[in-house]
């Protein structure tokens, strides 16, 4: 089983949905990535339509985080093509920066800026990259904080917030750049159980609003509710690409079955 199988599935999905390929906002063709001699991505081919929510599952070390990090070039792929919103990711720095400002990324460890207040965490990029005046950026930031449910924390520092609140600030910080795509790299793995729901609720609401999302997660409940499609990664390749319902009830691949038996 290799990437060609995944590609077939994708075409099927696209045909079923009656969508045209030119609405694909992310296109990956035969993407390879090595860390030293370790082959982390072995020819990943897939595409994501605008407004689609794709959940990426897989055992640790399967390349799922590496894959979404190549999409905004936090990792460089070494072979194959990645085209995001019509722009091919190459070594051209200006391309990379304009792509990065179109893609939001939420990290497992939040990565809020500890020396800046919550509000300044959110306004920094709009003011410096988009050149918005402070008043506009702050107004926008407050709207976003209300959307994630913590407007009263605006003047605190990240360390004064709980993990769940920090992750919601991180989501608001990315949304402030008005991205077309949001990447989530295990956004709830570092959270205490009672805080996971508040973050997943925000993500679910975001999915309903029509945002294109790629989510690496182990939260099967959330994935079943929100996802349009599952990608199952193992050993650096897409093993199975399927609808949530089909994948969870009737997986096609042996490796998928083994994985599901371990996490469910």
């Amino acid at each position: 089983m290799d990437a060609s199988n995944g590609h077939e599935n994708l075409e099927k999905t696209a045909a079923n949905g009656g969508e045209m390929a030119d609405e694909d906002i992310i296109i990956c063709r035969d993407v390879h990535k090595w860390f030293g001699s370790f082959h982390a991505l072995k020819g990943v081919t897939t595409s994501v339509r605008e407004g689609e929510v794709v959940v990426i599952l897989g055992p640790s070390g399967s390349g799922k985080s590496t894959f979404i990090r190549t999409l905004n070039r936090l990792e460089e792929h070494q072979r194959g093509d990645i085209i995001v919103d019509g722009i091919e990711l190459t070594k051209d720095i200006r391309n990379i920066e304009s792509i990065r400002s179109e893609i939001g990324m939420v990290f497992q460890s939040f990565n809020l800026f500890p020396h800046l207040k919550v509000i300044d965490n959110i306004t920094l990029a709009p003011m410096k990259v988009r050149k918005w005046p402070r008043a506009r950026a702050e107004e926008d930031a407050m709207t976003l904080l209300e959307r994630v449910g913590i407007p009263e924390q605006a003047d605190k520092y990240p360390s004064q917030l709980s993990g769940g609140q920090q992750q919601r600030v991180a989501i608001a910080r990315e949304l402030a750049m008005q991205p077309k795509i949001m990447l989530f790299d295990e956004p709830t793995s570092a959270l205490d159980p009672e805080m996971i729901k508040e973050v997943l609720d925000v993500m679910g609401e975001l999915a309903e609003s029509g945002m294109t999302m790629l989510v690496v997660t182990h939260e099967v409940g959330f994935a079943r509710e929100a996802a349009d499609r599952f990608l199952f990664f193992d050993h650096g390749e897409i093993v199975e690409e399927n609808t949530p319902k089909e994948f969870l009830t009737n997986p096609k691949e042996e490796r998928s079955k083994l994985f599901l038996s371990q996490i469910l």
Partner: peptide, 18 residues
């Protein structure tokens, strides 16, 4: 510094100097 700080800044679209 945690490398995540730089990654978060870059993923927001800030340039290297910023």
């Amino acid at each position: 510094l945690h490398p995540g700080q730089e990654e978060a800044a870059r993923s927001l679209g800030l340039s290297g100097w910023q």
